[in-house]
Design a protein around this nucleic acid. Structure first.
Ligand SMILES: NC(=O)c1ccc[n+]([C@@H]2O[C@H](COP(=O)([O-])OP(=O)(O)OC[C@H]3O[C@@H](n4cnc5c(N)ncnc54)[C@H](O)[C@@H]3O)[C@@H](O)[C@H]2O)c1
Ligand SMILES: NC(=O)c1ccc[n+]([C@@H]2O[C@H](COP(=O)([O-])OP(=O)(O)OC[C@H]3O[C@@H](n4cnc5c(N)ncnc54)[C@H](O)[C@@H]3O)[C@@H](O)[C@H]2O)c1
Lengths: 224, 224
DNA sequence: CCCGTTTTGTTCTCCCGTTCACAAACTCCT
DNA sequence: AGGAGTTTGTGAACGGGAGAACAAAACGGG
């Protein structure tokens, strides 16, 4: 049975969870523009969604708005950040410091959005001399000690596809419970470990599918 | 009743479209292993999905299997590739050749999966000397002529977020109708233009949310 | 040639997510 | 203070997708 959870721990729909970061980013943008209050309509426009959907999403977190007025930008921003869990930084390790790994290591958006890269690992010894974004590239063998030392629970895989499953297995064994996978491969992981994949080719192929259909439409298909 | 409409009756659900590239990749993997025939069960396992879902997805394309036998790997592979539209290469331009743009330009997966990078563009003149992955980095001003010359319909944005909307506008004006956006910003585009976004921070924050919930029992940090 | 086995293609049901529409709640103005 | 004007929060309808279950089709063995 599920443990009864005191007061928070309502279960937020997955689709809503996926949009909370978008709202958070929109709120940060509004705050930087000096906006202190916003309506659901304005925030929805900034986030690129329907305002009814936005309100329903926010209602899962609680009643943080004021009817007739709107939302306090700073307050809502904090509440969403707290709900997502990015009021403090999460330590992250990146494995596979090739083309993509370099870009990720140099990505400044990590720090500002609740994450801190604590180690860069690669299996290729010739990479171990290198310093990327102020961090040594270290041996993949150090994974376990680094995970333990920094209490890392999130790992990023940027190795070739053939190595991805083995890297994931090592990560899981070391105690990592969330994996972001950039390699184009299907990962098998135990229950309780979350995997999300980012796959450039799939995104492009989805675009290609729709693109192909657009050009078919130029020849009029007279149903109607 | 669906009459057998070999080319027209395509109303493929979006969720299915998003999985077709995964099936295609699984089939390529099977073919490389020398497998000539596979059941829906095997293919589903390779693709990491439920076999019923796989069969239903494939049924939208047509009846390409043989009952009691399974699917011919090469034949199904071709049919899916044709449906997605990657039997020939799509020309692609990448705008913003910074950290991420370099990685993308060097990514070999483009060629092998139905895409061909025809130009790398950047607004920064100091980058124009560079040659990346055998291509000159060219001025963003050349966008229109390149799009026209190569009949490009797909563009990739890898610029900072502040520049993304302006780049998208120029792309659309130049005739591009599909955009893959790596910048963390919401793009507004006209009807008929498809945008897909890849957002590292959002993926990590979704993982963080679930990670936070996992550790609810273990002594929360900073819960006030 | 016929029957049992295998596996597809499809139907049916359930669940999740989206959207509409509106009552409740708050502010401001007179 | 009271009413008019706003805007939130949510109940309900709707549509699409996931998964179980099964009938139809192909193959092989006797
Ligand atoms: N480059 C891109 O833009 C891009 C885009 C989309 C997807 N990807 C995918 O991301 C992955 C990495 O791409 P890349 O271009 O950086 O490749 P790359 O070959 O440049 O880098 C891979 C790195 O992983 C290291 N590595 C290999 N096996 C390892 C192991 N077992 N443990 C630890 N490290 C290991 C290699 O030493 C190398 O440094 C690939 O799977 C690729 O398909 C890349
Ligand atoms: N580096 C990563 O791993 C990573 C990960 C996720 C998202 N992103 C996002 O991808 C984008 C690029 O990241 P990056 O690290 O490569 O940044 P970067 O600063 O290294 O590169 C950006 C490039 O875009 C060019 N540019 C700026 N304005 C332009 C314009 N108007 N037209 C054409 N080119 C222009 C710049 O000259 C520069 O070369 C950013 O939006 C970033 O948030 C990067």
């Amino acid at each position: 049975m599920t443990a009864r959870t005191p007061d928070s721990a309502r279960d937020i729909p997955e689709a809503t969870v996926a949009r909370l970061p978008v709202y958070l980013r929109a709120l940060i943008g509004l705050a930087e523009d000096g906006t202190t209050t916003c309506s659901s309509e304005e925030l929805a426009a900034s986030a690129g969604v329907n305002s009814a959907k936005l309100r329903k999403d926010l209602s899962y977190l609680g009643s943080y708005g004021t009817r007739g007025v709107g939302y306090d930008v700073e307050y809502l921003r904090y509440q969403i950040a707290r709900e997502i869990g990015v009021t403090h930084d999460w330590p992250v390790v990146i494995v596979g410091i090739g083309n993509l790994g370099h870009a990720l290591a140099n990505y400044s958006g990590f720090r500002s959005r609740g994450f801190r890269v604590v180690a860069l690992l690669d299996a290729d010894p010739s990479r171990h001399d290198e310093v990327v974004a102020g961090l040594d590239v270290r041996s993949f063998e150090e994974l376990e000690s680094i995970v333990t030392e920094h209490d890392v629970s999130i790992g990023v895989i940027a190795t070739p596809a053939v190595a991805a499953q083995a890297v994931a297995d090592r990560m899981v064994a070391a105690g990592i419970t969330s994996i972001l996978n950039f390699a184009p491969s299907v990962l098998a992981v135990p229950e309780g470990v979350d995997v999300r994949k980012v796959d450039l080719s799939i995104e492009l192929q989805i675009l290609a599918y729709h693109e192909q259909r657009k050009s078919v439409g130029t020849g009029a298909e007279g149903v109607s």
